[in-house]
Design a protein around this nucleic acid. Sequence first.
DNA 1: AGAATCGTGGCACAAAGTGGGAAGAAGTGG
DNA 2: CCACTTCTTCCCACTTTGTGCCACGATTCT
Lengths: 145, 145
Amino acid sequence: MLRGNIPARVDEKGRLKIPAAFLEELKGYGEQFYVTSETGDYARIFPMKVWEELESKLARLSSHNQTKQKFLTWTNYYGQAVEVDSQGRVLIPPVLREAAQMKGDVDVMGHLTYLEVWNHSRSLENLKKSPITDEDLKILDELGI
Amino acid sequence: MLRGNIPARVDEKGRLKIPAAFLEELKGYGEQFYVTSETGDYARIFPMKVWEELESKLARLSSHNQTKQKFLTWTNYYGQAVEVDSQGRVLIPPVLREAAQMKGDVDVMGHLTYLEVWNHSRSLENLKKSPITDEDLKILDELGI
DNA sequence: AGAATCGTGGCACAAAGTGGGAAGAAGTGG
DNA sequence: CCACTTCTTCCCACTTTGTGCCACGATTCT
């Protein structure tokens, strides 16, 4: 399972080196990945199999389901199938590279079955937006966490 | 169960030697650990199994639960899976090393199922900020402690 | 006091990350 | 349909970071 955050860089050519710790975990899935986003604020990197499962879940929904349609429209817009190269790098598709500001310093976070990549400064802004309050701590405490 | 406080040091390379007393207690859990923090003020070292249990507790909550989301956002940001080496050391991930000032003297405290590590001088400040008040003593007394 | 264990630091090797060049492929415009 | 440009991919080399190993010093236990 993919967990935690490893800082990385996207080079001039839009290539992202997948941190070794994640690559190790992902190597059971082959070289095929699907890179996309729902919003364009970040990039999500799915092993192709994981994405296909997600697709088949969607397929069970009615084709008139608005939410499903929207999701597919956006993920299609930003999406592209990619392969990792021999040095463990993937090329971020230009559309997403632009939208999610995939250049320079980025944070690569594990989300159990896929990776989520944020532009580093955008990631910080995002954190600031969700501070943990004393109230939150109390709730967590009640849950035994 | 992990209890008490043992001073330790983080070396130049960001490695923390887990005090032998705690290591003994932890050896049933294997070499995999998850190092993270909610706030970045300290580091928490969870045996992977303990962390996974915590994750599954969270999984039972709605994905719209704000507190859960915040908690995961932060712990994911600071988190990284690590292994203890043959000498009982773990590498503190760079992000946390920076945020929680994991260098030089630190205090390693047992919290029953995980360890909490504070920069020593920060730990002192923290203690001073939360003195036990007469009010607290009264409450403890009522609880028969 | 002696033996054993624990913590600490240093060093050397290995692995991971980074960047750049050049060849190849794809796309564009004349 | 060809020439040119741009983007991608592959490969190599350098730098940084992490890891394993060993040895010394301190501490504890007997």
